[in-house]
Amino acid sequence: MTIENKKGWISWFNPFRYGTDRWMYSLHRLTGIILGFYLIAHVWETSHILDGPITWNSLMVFLDYPFGPHFGPFILSGVLLVAVYHALNGIRLTIVENGLMLPKPYRPEFPYRPKSLKGLNNVLKILLGVLMIIISAIGIYFIFTGVIL
């Protein structure tokens, strides 16, 4: 009798010891699940506009101040961070998963560092980090101040 030794879904949370791509895979999957549930919540939330001005306005107040002043914006900032990561990494994956910006097949040489995870893919990752900081800083500023340009 042999036993199955599958690592299982718990290994999503064990991206240690591999590389940045492995981290980004785990994060992409987790943020995707969060955003999926957020979509359902958002569709439910916006459907309250059918119930008229009083329900809608009190719901907006409740969502802005669910548990005291400016607790709502914290949740919204979290959703923003998750969405910005998923979007930017999604662009990166659309590029690299379709074989663009990857190296041509090459001769492996000791110490066998994989080139597909380096090079332009690395440039994209750094660009992702920079853009993520800029976009989420602007977004969080707007969420907390509520001021529109």
Partner: peptide
């Protein structure tokens, strides 16, 4: 109103009286 929420907090409780998320703006 160039703001998301415009509250009237004079009576203690918040009520939304303006802003882009107000009912009439969203409608």
């Amino acid at each position: 109103d160039k703001i998301l929420y415009l509250y009237n907090s004079s009576s203690g409780a918040h009520t939304l009286i303006g802003g882009t998320l107000n009912y009439y703006s969203v409608k």
